[in-house]
Amino acid sequence: MHPHIEKLYISARKSSRLIIGLMSGTSLDGLDVALCKVTGAGTNTQINVLHFTTVEYDQDYKNKIKQVFAKRECDLELVTLLHPWVGKLHGTMVSKCLQTWKVNASDIDVIASHGQTIYHCPKTQHNHPDFDNGTLQIGDSDQIAVTTGITTIGDFRQKHIAAGAEGAPLAVYGDYLYFSSADETRILLNMGGIANLTFLPKSGAMRDVFSSDIGPGNTIMDAYVQQYFSPLHYDDNANIAKSGKVNADLLKALCNNAFFNLSMPKTTGPEVFNLAYLQRAQQKSNTLNLNHEDVLATLNTFTARVIANAINECAQNNSVVYASGGGIHNPLLMAQLKELCPSIKAFKNTDDLGINPDAKEAVLFAILANECLAAEQQSLSNHTQGIAGITMGKVSFPD
């Protein structure tokens, strides 16, 4: 037996494993690194986050990724070069985190890497009848493994597509395994660049559990701030949006998209919801001369309304929302959600469930890696997406 296979076998049989979860989202703010002690598997999964940090990306990283990010046409040579470059950079970041935490790389069972999404194209978005769903994440897991000396599991979304689904969202698996409750119906709301939710009925029935993208979270707001309020990267504390007024005509145009009429589960990305989408909405609503503060106020309300509509669509009596992602730091957005969702019993953060809301997505991929290593097959249909008993993740050895 190859030593690497033997080590994986030993890891799979352990009662608990040390797994580093990595998440780099569409906001491009940094690499989330979560060192997790994962005990058990399946519905018996227990998580203890030992360390968490976000390693901020410098402007060079952001500039390089933005040249290919969510662009239908881009430099293929640059994409090819970025794939190993991002992987090596992420590996270096992990090694520095381990040094800071005084943790030996040899003690880590595996790294779980999401990679950096640069293009997401479900069949509902692209116009190629000969093709099905597609998604592309760069950040080669071989580079991470070689750089850190730690076996790395990555490229999770491709199996989701191979099994007939859309590659996103993957939150249904980790959310169900870790956050389900027999005592209350929960909606796990993640507000990153794109917002998504997982519906967890207190019945615990797998057939009723689903995850779905909702629409834009912070992606258009952040892009707008970066374009017109540089050097700011986002609207801190929603101060800019609070100083503006919502424009009803622009809001109506923004909300007029076929995606919002699709049944959940569904998926989308910044390939659709971006500054070009905003500009088209402004053209249609004759609001191109609107001041920047009013645009941001309207974008904030647009995001709140889209999220609230999805929550209200699936909420049951006394449902509790547990929020995570960058959107939780936007007080205007959170206030609007509470106002627009009167049937929700309470809005809380995943801190109340024992997981730092900023770390949740990185922890999710640690859970997926743990399932790849140690779990019996689960069957989650996610309603119409037809997922049953799939194992996600490709294994990269360090030598």
Score class of each variant (00 low, 15 high):
residue 2 H to F: 09
residue 6 E to Q: 14
residue 10 I to D: 01
residue 16 S to R: 11
residue 20 I to A: 02
residue 31 L to F: 10
residue 32 D to V: 04
residue 34 A to H: 00
residue 36 C to S: 12
residue 40 G to T: 13
residue 42 G to R: 10
residue 47 I to E: 13
residue 49 V to W: 01
residue 63 N to M: 06
residue 65 I to L: 09
residue 67 Q to L: 10
residue 79 V to H: 03
residue 80 T to Y: 00
residue 83 H to W: 00
residue 84 P to L: 06
residue 97 C to Q: 13
residue 97 C to T: 07
residue 101 W to Y: 15
residue 104 N to C: 06
residue 107 D to T: 12
residue 121 C to E: 14
residue 130 D to A: 08
residue 133 N to T: 09
residue 136 L to Y: 09
residue 136 L to E: 08
residue 137 Q to E: 10
residue 137 Q to N: 05
residue 139 G to S: 07
residue 140 D to E: 15
residue 142 D to S: 12
residue 146 V to Q: 12
residue 154 G to W: 00
residue 156 F to K: 03
residue 158 Q to M: 11
residue 158 Q to F: 12
residue 167 G to T: 02
residue 168 A to N: 02
residue 172 V to F: 15
residue 172 V to G: 05
residue 182 A to F: 00
residue 194 I to M: 15
residue 198 T to Y: 03
residue 200 L to A: 08
residue 201 P to N: 13
residue 209 V to N: 14
residue 214 I to H: 09
residue 219 T to V: 15
residue 227 Q to K: 15
residue 238 A to Q: 03
residue 242 K to N: 08
residue 246 V to I: 14
residue 249 D to C: 04
residue 250 L to H: 10
residue 261 N to I: 00
residue 261 N to D: 08
residue 263 S to E: 07
residue 272 V to D: 02
residue 272 V to K: 15
residue 274 N to D: 14
residue 278 L to K: 06
residue 281 A to V: 02
residue 295 V to A: 02
residue 304 A to C: 04
residue 305 R to M: 15
residue 308 A to C: 03
residue 310 A to R: 15
residue 313 E to Y: 12
residue 314 C to Q: 02
residue 318 N to M: 08
residue 320 V to I: 14
residue 325 G to L: 12
residue 330 N to L: 10
residue 345 K to I: 07
residue 349 N to P: 09
residue 353 L to Y: 10
residue 360 K to C: 06
residue 365 F to Q: 03
residue 367 I to L: 10
residue 379 S to G: 05
residue 380 L to H: 07
residue 382 N to M: 05
residue 385 Q to T: 13
residue 385 Q to D: 13
residue 390 I to T: 12
residue 394 K to W: 03
residue 396 S to C: 02
residue 397 F to D: 07
residue 398 P to C: 02
